[in-house]
């Protein structure tokens, strides 16, 4: 019960978000990237955003991270409005973006150093390295790591601040199929034992069905929400089960339809 009061503050609400960007060739005109998006993520829920490329998934994620500000509309975490980036909302990109000049340990510590709390929380660094299974690589530099290892460091780096919300922008997109499936389980494990609210942007429909509580399908130009689908399958999910494939068919059909409507 204590858990729920804590996590209630970590739900995300997106209300009527519009975002446009200047067109590079014609500075006077602006291209609408997001045209009035509304949805919400309950505390400790894992929601995936899928949609054709260019539909504004990453733009939306950056807005929730606070790295960009919307033209209009409201973004809230709990009851607080998002006005800029914060350690409360961790972000992991497709490229792990590890700081190459820091070791694995240095990268994981970065959030504590940035907030000036390294001294008090140093003991957590080892805990997070264990959590992602990288104790043996504490002193390695990022260029020595494989793609999967680097992404695990990026996850640990984002999680060490105990963010209320973890934003994942195609975090497994650059990995090979086997590493990718293993990492999906790993992210699920982290999510299950930390109960962090997660918003996952992905191209991979199987990944979305395998991992999420709910899938939000977007259409492109300008980005709008087409449909939300609850994935009410028990975990761990069977990637070849009938109901899994039924969800897959449904979403594919939707994306196809979405693609036609935009064209």
């Amino acid at each position: 019960m204590v858990m729920t009061t804590v996590t209630e503050a970590s739900g995300v609400r997106v209300r009527d978000i519009c975002k446009s960007f200047p067109v590079p060739d014609a500075p006077a005109t602006r291209r609408m990237a997001l045209g009035g998006i509304s949805f919400s993520i309950a505390a400790a829920e894992l929601v995936s955003l899928v949609g054709p490329s260019g539909c504004g998934k990453s733009t939306l994620l950056r807005l929730v991270a606070g790295l960009d500000l919307p033209d209009s509309g409201d973004l809230l975490v709990g009851k607080e409005k998002i006005v800029g980036p914060s350690a409360e909302r961790g972000l992991v990109f497709q490229d792990p973006n590890l700081f190459p000049w820091l070791t694995v340990r240095g990268n994981i510590e970065a959030g504590l150093v940035a907030r000036g709390v390294l001294r008090e929380k140093r003991n957590e660094v080892g805990e997070f390295m264990r959590l992602v299974g990288l104790e043996a690589f504490a002193n390695a530099y990022p260029h020595h790591l494989s793609g999967g290892m680097a992404q695990r460091v990026a996850l640990a780096r984002a999680l060490i601040n105990h963010p209320k919300v973890l934003l994942l922008d195609e975090p497994l997109g650059a990995l090979d199929a086997f590493t990718r499936m293993r990492m999906q389980d790993e992210v699920l494990r982290l999510w299950e034992n930390r109960r962090t609210t997660m918003l996952l942007v992905t191209h991979d429909i199987d990944e979305a069905i395998y991992m999420s509580d709910r899938i939000v399908i977007m259409t492109q130009a300008p980005g709008r929400i087409d449909r939300e689908i609850d994935i009410d399958l028990p975990r761990p999910r069977d990637r070849t089960g009938d109901s899994f494939l039924r969800f897959r068919g449904e979403i594919l059909e939707h994306l196809h339809f979405a693609g036609k409507a935009a064209a």
Partner: peptide, 20 residues
């Protein structure tokens, strides 16, 4: 993206300049 990551880790300007 290094600066973006640092911002989402709670970095302020001094960290962004001197540590990124």
């Amino acid at each position: 993206s290094y600066l973006d990551v640092a911002r989402t880790l709670g970095a302020r300007r001094l960290y962004l300049i001197f540590r990124v």
